[in-house]
Structures are given as structure tokens and as C-alpha cells.
Design a protein around this nucleic acid. Sequence first.
DNA 1: AAATGGGGCAACCGCGAATGT
DNA 2: TACATTCGCGGTTGCCCCATT
Length: 282
Amino acid sequence: MGRAPCCGKMGLNKGPWTKEEDQILISYINENGRGNWRALPKKAGLLRCGKSCRLRWTNYLRPDIKRGNFTQEEEDTIIKLHEALGNRWSAIAATLPGRTDNEIKNVWHSHLKKRLIPQQDHDQHHQGQAVRKTKSEQGTNKALSVEKPKFHCQDSNSSPVKIIVSKQERGTNNQSSSLQYSSSDDISSSLSFTDATTTTTTIPDNPTEIYLTNSGDGDSVSNKHQELDQDIWHDVVSSQDHSLSPVLHRGGCGFNPFTNDDINFWCDLFTRTEDISHLLEF
DNA sequence: AAATGGGGCAACCGCGAATGT
DNA sequence: TACATTCGCGGTTGCCCCATT
């Protein structure tokens, strides 16, 4: 649907924030919480649009913002996650407490990307990989956002993958759920569980793909293959380490879509015992 | 000392998703 | 179910600072 026309309104301040404006915003949020961003500037007495307030708060004024240069560890994490997730800055930021997506994006473009260029040139020379196209070359910027990593199982002898599923208190949604996995293109096994369950399972047969889905009303399970055919699954996360590397598909289906809370919930509780758990902390 | 160019970063813009009615 | 509203993300812009000429 349409955009909120907040920023186009006349008479609102734009550009850099003054100390006075910062103080008003901080005081208001400290006293009243964040609430409705659109209504916030009016209530707080700021001549800013809600969007500008939200950005200022999340990127600069939040008390838990970490200042200063990025550590080597943080930079390494960004590089690693960017390789796995692409330009999903918010997902990367979620793994670095105190760092914002905007900050990470800036660091990437100003420092880290350059550092990788020699290595990428080297790789492309040896592997014949296509050079990533620029935005103008792609036509629209959405071409990047629908790009999904494809999994190719390169190690057919990898050991079984241990999955721990522990379901916790989750607010108002009481649907049961299922974990399904395949060793080929077909769904071969599944594990169903309901609220308040903790389950540990070892998935045999070198799985290539894992699906996590709501199954409360049956729709998502009965229509699983159709959904896969229609490619409506989103947010594919792949491990960089191909020696233990099914693709994890998370997300909902057309009949029974996951909400943001659902996705966050699943990502919190769904972890592999080894390397890729750090990829799922968002 | 002045001009200039580039880097870094805060902020804006446009869009789609999520949520509300 | 349809539409309106709000939120959050990612791409982009533009200003400021600093090094270089």
C-alpha cells in the first residue's frame, strides 16, 4: 500500500539534528517509551517527521549504541556474515550488539569492501565467476533483494546434523509446528512438536534442505510441495561451510504466513549445534 | 593560504512488509 | 477481505572534514 506521506509535509525540519532536538527526543522516549513513531514528534514537540525521529533514535541516540571503531572481531564477523547473507544489514547488525545496520553498511562500503576486492579479483580469475552487476546494470535494486544463495551439497560423506528444537512461551500464537528435512528434492522426514516441547533430533542421510513451518491448521503441511514449487519461501540462509551444510529455509506460506515475531521466535530457538548458529541470531 | 578532491558518515528516500480497522 | 496506516530495511545522497596540491 501507499507510503506514509510524513516526510513530505511542509514546515518540518530536515537535515542534521541539533542538541536541543536530541534532548527533547531522549527525554520524551525516556518518559513515555517509543510507542507510535508517527505521533511521537507531535507529542514531544519536535518539528520532525516520525521517520526522522526513529532513525535518529535507532542510529544515534539509543543508550545501548556502541561508539568507536569496529574491532577486528567485529569486522571479521561482518565480512563472514555478508558473504553468507548479502546486504542484509539489519540481520548482520543483530549479531553485533550496539552496532546499527546503518553503521555496518557504512563501514562495509567505506572499509571492508575495499579490503576484499583483491581477494575477489583473485577468486574470479581462477573460478570464472561472473562479476556482480551494479545497480544500474541490473535495472532495479530489487534484483539484489530476491537473489537467493543456492545450496550445492559438496560433501556427501558429512556426518548427521544434530538439531535442537526447544519451544518456549510464545505469546498468543498457540499453533503447533514442524521441522521437515530432505536428502533430495523431496521432503523425506519430519518432526512435529507443539508448545512447551524440547526435542533433540539427529537428521540422517546428509540432509540438503531443512524447512521449518507452522502447521497449526494443516494448510502449510498439506500444501508444502506446492509452496516449494511456487518458490514462496523466503530468507534462505546457507552455511559457508559446505562440510555441514543444509540450507535452512525459514518463513511462512501463503495460507499461514509467519509474522515478524514468528520468524524471530524460530530463529531464537532453532540452532544447529555447530558452525551456523551464529548466522541465526536474528 | 586557498582550492580541490576523496572519504566517512548521518540522514533522507522509496519501497515492501506488517499491522490495524 | 480490502484498504489504510505504520514500520523497518536497504540504497542513495549530501555535507563535513581532512589530506593533498
